[in-house]
Computed example of a mutant assay.
Amino acid sequence: MKAILIAVAVLFSTSLFAQNADAVLGKWETKNGKSHVEIYKKDGEYYGKIVWLKEPLNEEGKPKVDKNNPEEDMRSRPLKGLELLREFEYDADDEMWEDGEIYDPESGDTYSCEMSLEGDNKLKVRGYLGISLLGRTTVWTRVE
């Protein structure tokens, strides 16, 4: 009987601390404060798009576009609404979202990416080439 109670207690405490896969959903301010990215779920995977820009207009007073995209026909698409995060899957064992990609409109480059939460309001976003050790991590803050 004592063993059963211990097993139930361990199972219950594990579920209390296990992270919810959807905990990443919501709006996040990027490290530099230039944009807000909304993370949402589509077909069981996690995606993120720009929903706010600190400076939405270019020097000519027109909405900023994806001018650094390597594909010429994509350079006229607006930055607001641009999907930056694609195809993340949640790994419950590591409590992180992985196997996704992040697009950097400032350089036009796309990187492999993984994300993990630090508490409820900090999101560590790590972009990398090849292996995760060769990359850069930035921290985004949840927007209320």
Rank of each mutant, 00 (worst) to 15 (best):
S112T: 11
S116R: 15
P56T: 12
V125I: 13
A3D: 15
K31N: 15
A18Y: 00
T137Y: 01
K49V: 02
G61H: 11
D43T: 13
P63E: 06
G61P: 02
G100T: 10
I6P: 09
R142P: 11
D94V: 11
I102A: 08
E72K: 04
G33S: 14
A3F: 12
V125S: 04
E98M: 08
G108E: 03
L84Q: 04
L123S: 02
N68T: 08
L5R: 09
E101Y: 07
E29H: 12
L79T: 07
Q19C: 01
E101N: 12
L123R: 08
D120T: 12
S116I: 06
G135S: 08
M96R: 15
N121H: 07
G61W: 02
R75V: 09
L25S: 15
K80F: 04
D22N: 14
G127P: 00
I39L: 00
P78C: 06
G48Q: 03
L57Q: 10
E71D: 10
A9N: 04
G108I: 01
A21S: 15
F17P: 05
G108H: 09
E72T: 09
C113M: 11
K67P: 13
N32T: 14
S76M: 12
L57S: 06
D109R: 15
N121Y: 03
L134R: 15
K122L: 04
D22C: 07
K64S: 03
E118M: 02
K54C: 07
S13L: 11
K27P: 10
